[in-house]
């Protein structure tokens, strides 16, 4: 393609974005836009899938049948979210199995929050409330993302997420109202998940190298720090309401700005976990790799069966 032709295509592309016209799979798009989306959407898909592991850990040990049915439904939803998103990456020409292999080789990342262990039942509460809560903050603006298939997947995901957060909050609320031991369990879960939840929004704006371009392309609508602030502002009063304490001695409400000010995030910990040195990184990726390997014969058998059925149909 000639240089000036590309410049015109790029101009038309940006004009569409500026006018809030969605980009669809067959439309022309710059390579960098395509690559950014494939990276972001596949990482998002991996997060949904890996995110099933810490919660799946508690399905058989849920305290009663209602909690068990709810947790099962939630984890099943996360599988669905992963599938919507893998489909969206395929509309960009990415190969599904390649993106999954990138996860298994450690090349692709996923949300660092899922590299923390789930030590008690209260962690199911903390995850639903805080982790799904933070995910909702991130995902709601993505419903207006410039890329059509991603935006549509996010609309479905967001519709399903709100029950996830409510069931988590309900677990925390119930524990917080329970015996002193139960309340201590809830507080302990909040203590362990609060900071990793804040880290879910990604590095500070000054450190975030992709933000400016992603905002220009309307893949992203708010910066990491804006979303993090929004999360803190809505979550702190929820903790207070159920009598739990946010583990941040520097947390205070600023009357002038109407926002909470919070303490310094341990970015060293964040980067350590992103780089693979979190408490469960190895366990999570090993579990995914094993699932793919152990499922191989099933996939092969299904393929063989489908071929046999087709032959039989043709013969009859």
């Amino acid at each position: 393609m000639k240089e000036e032709d590309r410049a015109i295509l790029e101009q038309n592309f940006q004009a569409k974005i500026d006018n809030d016209i969605r980009i669809e799979p067959n439309d022309w798009m710059p390579d960098a836009y395509r690559e950014t989306l494939i990276r972001q959407i596949s990482q998002h898909a991996h997060s949904e899938i890996v995110g099933m592991l810490p919660e799946g850990n508690w399905i058989t040990r849920a305290p009663n049948l209602r909690r068990k049915a709810v947790l099962l439904a939630k984890v099943q939803d996360e599988a669905g979210h992963g599938l919507y998103l893998y489909s969206a990456t395929e509309t960009l020409g990415a190969d599904r199995e390649d993106t999954i292999d990138d996860l298994h080789s450690g090349k692709a990342k996923y949300s660092s929050i899922f590299n923390y262990p789930t030590l008690s039942w209260a962690d199911m509460g903390a995850i639903g409330w805080l982790v799904d809560g933070a995910a909702i903050m991130n995902q709601v603006p993505l419903c207006r993302c410039s890329y059509g298939p991603y935006a549509r997947a996010m609309v479905r995901v967001c519709k399903e997420e709100s029950f996830h957060q409510r069931q988590g909050f309900e677990i925390m609320m119930t524990l917080a109202k329970g015996s002193p031991e139960q309340k201590a369990m809830a507080q302990d879960a909040l203590n362990r998940f609060w900071w990793p939840a804040l880290m879910m929004f990604g590095p500070n704006d000054a450190e975030s190298k992709h933000t400016a371009q992603s905002m220009k392309w309307k893949i992203k609508r708010h910066t990491n720090d804006e979303l993090r602030q929004q999360f803190v502002d809505v979550t702190v009063p929820q903790a207070e309401l159920i009598g739990l304490t946010v583990p941040d001695p520097d947390l205070k409400f600023n009357e002038q700005t109407g926002h909470y000010e919070y303490g310094e995030i341990n970015w060293d910990e964040f980067w350590q976990v992103v780089k693979g040195n979190g408490p469960c990184n190895k366990e999570r990726v090993d579990a995914r790799r094993k699932a793919k390997e152990d499922g191989l014969w099933v996939r092969e058998a299904a393929t063989a069966y489908a071929a046999k059925k087709k032959l039989r149909k043709q013969a009859s």
């Binding site: 489909s87 395929e90 549509r152 489908a306 059925k309 087709k310």
Partner: peptide
């Protein structure tokens, strides 16, 4: 509504 992968 979307797409998926399946053997048949």
């Amino acid at each position: 509504v979307g797409s998926l992968r399946a053997a048949d």
